[in-house]
């Protein structure tokens, strides 16, 4: 993964020098281990700040919304799918974009790493292909990357970008035989009371900071329903029903649009698995409409269109 850093810098420099783009959006190396910074460079002499490693889990499409200039952007599988979704939803035009595709082998879950070192402070991480070495004040441990992938990356079947102008490496082999919805099936098998308990516990730590909403490239409404006061759809306190309403409706707004990029979970300061909501919708979209978001520019999403053969068993 690290090998992409130089290539990204070279490409960005070229694009900016040739004035193919006005700005280039990528990641910069963070000031603490396992954290990277979204970065926009418009000066070809400053491209050395661009960086790529196994912790680029934040979705950069957030920074494309309603831009009017020409932008270069790095995109792995899920990011490229969100670019497609952005184009379909008229948030940016295809000809404004120069997409630098990156075949991805998954991002590392920083929480899993913290768990593995028993929450001790990590001072440095060295990433060497299939393994990585974690160093702290009084420990040094080597881990296999494969076992520490973000949970969405572990079941990802679209690692290669689906849309790009240029590719920075050979396409990687897509994973096969993964069962992405095991956790959803487990919940589906519960009776209503158990489900209620599951979701009540799931969100019990939520502090309503809205990091999940704001990290999601799909959430670009000028005014979010939680911020409206006429009518006030949902209360603003830490009341559990209001909090569940927020999570439920946020997820529902992502129906048929979510690419399971995992940005929401990655950014949550409280470690809440809010993908449990969106994954159910993804599963339903897959089963009822054979739909996965962001794979093509040529088809409208299922909630956008009416087809006579749409699933309608629930209408009595």
């Amino acid at each position: 993964m690290l090998r992409y850093t130089e290539k990204i810098q070279e490409t960005a420099k070229r694009l900016l020098q040739e004035k193919r783009v006005d700005a280039f959006i990528g990641y910069g190396k963070g000031s603490v281990p396992m954290m990277n910074q979204p970065l926009m460079v418009s000066d070809p002499d400053r491209v050395d700040r661009l960086y790529w490693d196994n912790f680029c889990g934040l979705n950069l499409c957030n920074y494309l919304t309603k831009r009017t200039d020409k932008v270069g952007i790095v995109a792995n599988g899920c990011n490229s799918r969100n670019i497609v979704t952005h184009i379909i939803e008229n948030q940016i035009k295809r000809d404004q974009l120069y997409i630098v595709g990156i075949p991805c082998e998954g991002m590392i879950d920083h929480r899993a790493v913290m768990r593995a070192v028993k929450q001790k402070e990590i001072l440095d991480i060295q990433q060497n292909g299939k393994t990585f070495v974690v160093k702290g004040a009084d420990f040094e441990e080597t881990f296999e990357k494969e076992k520490f992938l973000q949970s969405n990356c572990a079941v990802c079947i679209h690692r290669n970008p689906v849309i790009y102008d240029e590719l920075l490496g050979d396409l990687v082999e897509e994973q096969t035989g993964v069962s992405p919805y095991q956790d959803v099936e487990k919940v589906e098998a519960m009776d209503p009371e158990k489900k209620q308990g599951f979701f009540t516990r799931l969100i019990s730590r939520c502090i309503r900071c809205y990091a999940c909403r704001n990290a999601c490239p799909l959430c670009y409404c000028p005014t979010c329903f939680v911020d409206e006061s006429r009518p006030q759809w949902v209360g603003k306190s830490s009341d559990p029903t209001d909090t569940l309403t927020f999570h439920f409706l946020r997820a529902y707004h992502c129906a048929g649009r979510c690419t399971d990029c995992g940005a929401c979970e990655r950014v949550c300061p409280m470690g809440i698995s809010m993908r449990q909501f969106t994954k159910k919708l993804n599963k339903d979209c897959q089963e009822l409409f054979s739909w996965e978001a962001g794979l093509t520019l040529d088809q409208r999403p299922p909630l956008d269109v009416y087809r006579p053969d749409d699933y309608n068993d629930f209408i009595k």
């Binding site: 959803v184 919940v187 589906e188 209503p192 009371e193 158990k194 489900k195 209620q196 308990g197 599951f198 979701f199 569940l244 439920f248 997820a251 529902y252 129906a255 909501f277 159910k280 919708l281 339903d284 629930f314 209408i315 009595k316």
Partner: peptide
């Protein structure tokens, strides 16, 4: 909508859709 509501624990049978 119905799917997700029932997934998060609203009992089946509480939400109905009909075209009349």
């Amino acid at each position: 909508m119905k799917g997700l509501l029932e997934h998060v624990g609203v009992e089946p049978g509480r939400l109905h859709f009909s075209w009349i």
